[in-house]
Write a protein that binds this DNA or RNA. Structure first.
Lengths: 223, 223
DNA sequence: TTCAACATACATACTTGTCGGTATATTAGA
DNA sequence: TCTAATATACCGACAAGTATGTATGTTGAA
């Protein structure tokens, strides 16, 4: 086992960021305590203020680094997968975390946005960047589907993307408040049902065989 | 002009509640300052703590009285109007406040829920009561529509109600973060489009004349 | 006259952030 | 390569301010 260096500034910074992220996700930014973060990391106050100018700066770093990475990993990169756009979206939605702990803490992007956007313009701008990247990623995929003919051409990709984001966030909120994974599962099912309604109508009206993945065969939701 | 009594406990309590509500909506519960509320009302700390045992108790009263009344006025009572259920829902959604200030401060129910539900079970329960009443009101209306034949029978009223709530809250969040009334308007349009898709298919397939309100004639959204 | 309704001053706990100082790593020069 | 000089990383007590809540006094209304 290799000896851990006594000083490892990158590691220290990263540990602070992660602990701060967890604390902020738990309690919100304003009521996140510096001392709590320090206690969780065994880092001292001096070290923290060496790496970050202020609590605010720490918060910005959480948005720019930790949360941005979450969006990238959970949405932006999967959006680039191979396959039909709608299938990709359905897959992403299905794969969103569903464990009780995750449901309770919901989407950290939404949480921070709710809390900080009206209070602090710097936070708001940073969070908006993430929201826009998220929506733009979805919209781009939808446009691709439209030019491929697998996504209905009568819908506006930007608005539809925004709609999907709103649905996901809305359900995350409800599930968080209900503290009930069931609420989230029902929401997911309904979102998936809606996503299916975005497919371009099958060209061969009846009898035409198409390659269908299993989940496409499930009963259609009511819209 | 009638002389204002020097002591009017009910009025004092109500003024405190309203000012506290505004401050909580602005800054969130945790960072709402008692002193700010006092300054806004010209009430002293002794008076406040005469009417409310603690800041928490004040918060509970905000939920139980102020926010509950908002839900009632904006949703529960309108849900009981005369007319076709889907039209009623569309009307409610269209009438939701759209002014920049309102958009920025979004739905206070959602805000408080986001902030306090994971931290304080008492808050969570109270807020959940409101969410459930909200959803139940919508679901009841949908069921009525189903038995009247104006709402599609292949949808689950409870899930659909929950879906609508999630959409509204999700869009409110996005609009709040974007600080852009346009975002909210686009969201409203899309929600209304979705609501229209809940109508039972017209029985007379073509040419059958039905009474239609103007907004029903607008172009259908893409789903 | 009695009690609820309010006023004021204060107590206490906790917050973020600072500051002098120390230990370790890095680099420049001989 | 060894060493001196400097930069970086870190420590932890304390300052300064703010938070909620309390103790006690005063006043108006029934």
């Amino acid at each position: 086992m290799r000896k851990r260096r006594l000083r490892d500034p990158d590691r220290t910074r990263e540990r602070l960021l992660q602990a701060a992220f967890r604390e902020v996700r738990r309690s919100g930014f304003q009521s996140a305590g510096i001392n709590t973060i320090l206690a969780a990391t065994n880092v001292t106050k001096g070290a923290l203020y060496h790496h970050f100018d202020s609590k605010e700066a720490l918060g910005y770093a959480i948005v720019d680094e930790v949360i941005a990475k979450l969006v990238r990993d959970r949405w932006l990169l999967p959006l680039l997968s191979d396959g039909q756009p709608i299938d990709i979206l359905i897959g992403i939605v299905r794969r969103l975390p569903t464990r009780p702990a995750d449901v309770r803490e919901s989407c950290p992007l939404l949480n921070l946005a709710q809390e900080m956007s009206p209070l602090n313009e710097q936070f708001r701008k940073r969070l908006e960047r993430l929201f826009l990247a998220w929506q733009e990623g979805i919209a781009t995929l939808l446009r691709k589907g439209q030019s491929q003919g697998t996504v209905r051409r009568d819908l506006n990709p930007d608005e539809t993307a925004s709609f999907l984001v709103a649905m996901v966030e809305g359900h995350a909120s409800l599930a968080k408040n209900a503290q009930n994974a069931k609420v989230w599962e029902v929401g997911t099912r309904n979102i998936v049902g809606w996503l299916k309604s975005l497919r371009a109508p099958s060209q061969s009206r009846r009898g035409g065989r198409r390659m269908l993945k299993k989940h496409v065969l499930r009963q259609r939701q009511g819209f």
